[in-house]
Write a protein that binds this DNA or RNA. Sequence first.
DNA 1: GTTTGACAGTTCAAAAAAAGAACTGTAAAT
DNA 2: ATTTACAGTTCTTTTTTTGAACTGTCAAAC
Lengths: 170, 170
Amino acid sequence: MKWKELEEEPCSMARTIGVIGDRWTLLILRECFLRTRRFEGFQSALGITRHLLAERLKKLVRQGILRRVPYQESPKRHEYILTQKGLDLYPIMMAIVHWGDTHMVDVRGRPLLHQHRNCGKDFDPVMVCSECGEPVLAKEVHTHPGPGASRPLAQKEAPAPKPKARRKAA
Amino acid sequence: MKWKELEEEPCSMARTIGVIGDRWTLLILRECFLRTRRFEGFQSALGITRHLLAERLKKLVRQGILRRVPYQESPKRHEYILTQKGLDLYPIMMAIVHWGDTHMVDVRGRPLLHQHRNCGKDFDPVMVCSECGEPVLAKEVHTHPGPGASRPLAQKEAPAPKPKARRKAA
DNA sequence: GTTTGACAGTTCAAAAAAAGAACTGTAAAT
DNA sequence: ATTTACAGTTCTTTTTTTGAACTGTCAAAC
């Protein structure tokens, strides 16, 4: 499977992964949310090679996640700013950070805290159901094909312990 | 920057990316949540090379995201099951799917719908504040160093338009 | 008025990772 | 005796990524 194919699969997850699903892209986006805007800023904050950085920024611009905005003429210089589409990635970023806060911190605790200006408190992101407002657990979700499903792609697996004379069971 | 270093950075996002931040790992996890459990299942659903699949599964087991559970003796066979740590990735997966549903669908609509058993309705995931319960927007969040912050890593950038006789502005 | 530095890249060889295909091995089914 | 299911491993080729240097414009410092 090549990257182009990913973006054409009938799966919102595959398509999204095709766009932002690599290590450098995710780190670049982290920097964007921390207000980094310029080439040198990304480069020195991340230690990414300039070559790859240029490539990834181009891709993010092509995808409409960043906008390349000039901030001075001659030498032309641009800043990379999150578009609305890019800002919409925020829940993904927060979910990633939150998992790390839960499962990857050392004894010292979390490196970064997030304060919600609305209520003034440090918070964690919680995923709730848009319909009933309750927190959503994986077990409580049933997944089924929508209008854009061509190949099923879901549930294709798990032929269910076909009990047709199996081998010596464990 | 190599992958090992990523996992040691004082940043929950970098650490998480070090574990799940590559394309195949994310797709493997998608399959896990769709109830795929076996080597061949992953391989045929994803078209990943067997070599990489073996490697990624090993890594996920090492990280405690999957558990390798025997389901038959001689030929020893195992299933890969999400641990609680793995199940906790669900909000990340849902956030990714939701972004794709919002920004990457074609005319036909979403490939997959998610039904919340609690309320019976098809839903979207919404990220809310653990403290006040309101939806969280990127703009409303202030980020500040926590106990585990050694190097700042945040806000290191943006020296703020230092107005010290700038070049010919655009 | 020459040098230095900031900035935003591009170029190219070398190293690392991934793809592709075939091979190993156990055991049941045909 | 052969085929099939399953879970890998091995090996070669291709693609990506790294690392380091180079290009080019301009401002400021010397």
